[in-house]
C-alpha cells in the first residue's frame, strides 16, 4: 500500500515502548485524519503488543476514528445551554448543508459533523466549532455561510457572509 509508506517515518520517531502507543496513534490520526487498519497492525508489530490492545485504545477515545474523516471537523454543541437555544436545529441544518447527513462524514470527505456535549462557552450558545474556529450565537440561517467558507469549491454568498461574520471567536 503506497499510503503506508507515510507511516514509516511517523513510527521511526518513537521508541518501541508501549507508553508511546497513544502519541503514535495521534500522529497517524493527524496525518491521515483516520486510523487505517494496516497502520494499526504496524503499530502493534512495532510496539510488540497484540493488535487487540491497539484496537482497544483506538476504539476507546473519541479523537480516534477507524473510518475516514473529512478535512474539516465540525463540532456542534448540544450541551444544556446550546440545547435550550436550539442547538439541535443547528446540527440538523449543518448536516444537510455539508452533505454529511447522519453518517457523520460528507461523501466528498470535506466535512465530518459530530455533536459534542459542551464546548465550554455556554454564554455564546448555540455554538459550533469548525477545526479551531468557534462560531457563536448561531441560528439555522448562519450555517450555510459558515460551511461555504470552508468548502473549497463553494463561494460564500454575500448575504450569508454577513450573517456569519459577526461573532467569530478564536479559541
Amino acid at each position: 500500500m503506497p499510503e503506508m509508506e507515510a507511516v514509516k517515518p511517523l513510527l521511526a520517531q518513537f521508541k518501541d515502548e508501549r507508553a508511546n502507543l497513544i502519541p503514535i496513534l495521534q500522529e497517524i490520526q493527524a496525518a491521515f485524519s483516520y486510523l487505517p487498519e494496516e497502520a494499526l497492525r504496524r503499530v502493534a508489530r512495532k510496539l510488540h503488543v497484540p493488535v487487540t490492545d491497539v484496537y482497544q485504545v483506538a476504539t476507546f477515545y473519541r479523537c480516534f476514528s477507524l473510518k475516514p474523516r473529512g478535512r474539516h471537523l465540525v463540532q456542534v454543541c448540544l450541551g444544556t445551554a446550546c440545547h435550550v437555544r436550539g442547538g439541535d436545529l443547528v446540527l440538523e441544518r449543518t448536516q444537510t448543508e455539508t452533505g454529511a447527513g447522519l453518517s457523520g462524514t460528507s461523501p466528498d470527505l470535506e466535512f465530518t459533523v459530530e455533536p459534542v456535549r459542551c464546548l465550554g462557552c455556554c454564554g455564546l450558545a448555540p455554538v459550533m466549532r469548525v477545526d479551531r474556529d468557534t462560531f457563536a450565537h448561531l441560528d439555522q440561517a448562519k450555517v450555510r455561510g459558515i460551511v461555504n467558507r470552508y468548502h473549497p469549491r463553494r463561494k460564500p454568498a454575500t448575504v450569508d457572509k454577513i450573517a456569519a461574520s459577526p461573532e467569530k471567536v478564536r479559541s
Binding site: 503488543v49 497484540p50 493488535v51 487487540t52 490492545d53 484496537y55 482497544q56 476504539t59 476507546f60
Partner: peptide, 15 residues
C-alpha cells in the same frame, strides 16, 4: 486469552 494462552486475540472495544 492474554494471560494464560499468551494470545491476546480478543479485547474490549468501545467504551
Amino acid at each position: 486469552c492474554a494471560e494464560q494462552m499468551m494470545a491476546g486475540a480478543i479485547g474490549f472495544s468501545g467504551r
